[in-house]
C-alpha cells in the first residue's frame, strides 16, 4: 500500500483548536516543573474530556503536559483490604480486571458503564477525578467507598476532595498518582444514564464499609455528595425500603434540558433503592 504525498490544505481543520505547545513528561517532577514554568499549562491524561473541550474552544492552554509517558502511574493492585488503582489506568482496564472484580465488583461494573468501549480505552480514572465532571461516574464510587486520593504531594480523603462544580481539593499543579479503595463488605452502583452521552443524569453508589454505610450521589448536584439520612436509615436496616421514603431537597440540584432538579431529586431515591437491592442481592 502506497501512502501518497501530502494532500492540499491540511490546515483547515487545524484551526479548530487554539495553538498550544505539547510536552511529554518523563517523571512527576518533570511534569510539575514543566507546568510551573509554562504560561498557562494543563496536564493531559487520556484526553477524553480535555480534547473535546479544546476542540470546542471552551478552553485554551499555552501548553499541554502529557502524563502518559510517566512510569508507574497505571495498573491495579489488590493488597488485602485495599485496592490501589494507578491514576493513568484506563476505564477498560478497570472494568476488565479480574482481581478488582473479586475485591470490589461494584467498582468494576461502574467502570464498564462509563461512556463507550472506545472511550474507555483512553479515558483514565485520574483524569476523571481531576476534572470532577458533575455527571461523571467515578466520583460516586470514590465518595461512596471512602477512597483516598493519592497525589504527588499528599493523600486526600474522598470526603475532603469534591468541593464544587469542576472544583476539587487539588492545588495548582498537583498530580493524582493513584486512588486507594478500601474493600467494602458489599456495594453497588445504579445509574440512570443520559441515553445519548451515557453520563449519569443521576448515579448512586451504596456501600457497607468497615466505617459504616455510605451513600454517594453523582449527576444530581454540582459535585458528588453523600446522603446522611439514607446512610443512617441503612445502618439500621440495609434494605431498599429503608431509603424509599427519604428524599433529597431539589433546591441545589442541577437542572438542564435533560432533567429538572425535582426529577433528579426523585431519581436519587429511586437509584438508591435499586443500588441497595443490588448490594443486598
Amino acid at each position: 500500500m502506497d501512502i501518497p504525498a501530502r494532500l492540499p490544505d491540511p490546515r483547515k481543520r487545524e484551526k479548530k483548536m487554539y495553538r498550544f505547545e505539547y510536552h511529554k513528561a518523563t517523571s512527576l517532577e518533570d511534569a510539575a516543573s514543566k507546568r510551573s514554568t509554562a504560561d498557562d499549562a494543563t496536564y493531559l491524561a487520556g484526553g477524553m474530556t480535555l480534547i473535546p473541550t479544546l476542540k470546542q474552544r471552551l478552553a485554551s492552554h499555552s501548553d499541554l503536559i502529557d502524563l502518559a509517558g510517566i512510569d508507574g502511574l497505571a495498573g491495579i493492585s489488590v493488597d488485602g483490604a485495599v485496592v490501589t488503582i494507578g491514576a493513568m489506568t484506563c476505564h477498560a482496564e478497570v472494568a476488565a480486571s479480574a482481581a478488582l472484580r473479586d475485591a470490589i465488583p461494584a467498582l468494576a461494573d461502574l467502570a464498564g458503564l462509563i461512556a463507550d468501549p472506545a472511550v474507555r480505552n483512553r479515558g483514565t480514572i485520574g483524569g476523571s477525578l481531576a476534572n470532577s465532571d458533575p455527571a461523571a461516574d467515578y466520583p460516586a464510587a470514590v465518595l461512596g467507598l471512602g477512597a483516598t486520593i493519592v497525589t504527588d504531594k499528599r493523600e486526600i480523603a474522598a470526603d475532603d476532595y469534591f468541593l464544587d462544580l469542576f472544583e476539587t481539593a487539588l492545588e495548582e499543579g498537583e498530580i493524582i498518582t493513584a486512588i486507594k479503595f478500601p474493600v467494602p463488605k458489599r456495594a453497588a452502583y445504579e445509574k440512570f444514564p443520559n441515553p445519548a452521552s451515557r453520563y449519569a443524569i443521576v448515579g448512586v453508589f451504596v456501600a457497607e464499609t468497615e466505617g459504616g454505610v455510605r451513600v454517594a450521589v453523582t449527576g444530581a448536584g454540582p459535585c458528588a455528595f453523600r446522603v446522611s439520612d439514607m446512610e443512617a436509615a441503612l445502618a439500621g436496616n440495609f434494605a431498599p425500603d429503608a431509603v424509599a421514603g427519604i428524599t433529597v431537597s431539589a433546591d441545589d440540584l442541577n437542572q438542564d434540558l435533560h432533567a429538572s432538579a425535582a426529577y433528579r431529586a426523585s431519581l436519587v431515591t429511586t437509584m438508591a433503592k435499586r443500588a441497595v437491592a443490588k448490594a443486598a442481592g
Binding site: Y22, K24, L44, G47, I51, P52, L64, D66, A68, R122
Partner: peptide
C-alpha cells in the same frame, strides 16, 4: 479501538 477525532497525533 479508539476514536481518532479525540486524540492528538503527538499522543
Amino acid at each position: 479501538p479508539v476514536k481518532s477525532c479525540t486524540m492528538l497525533v503527538v499522543q
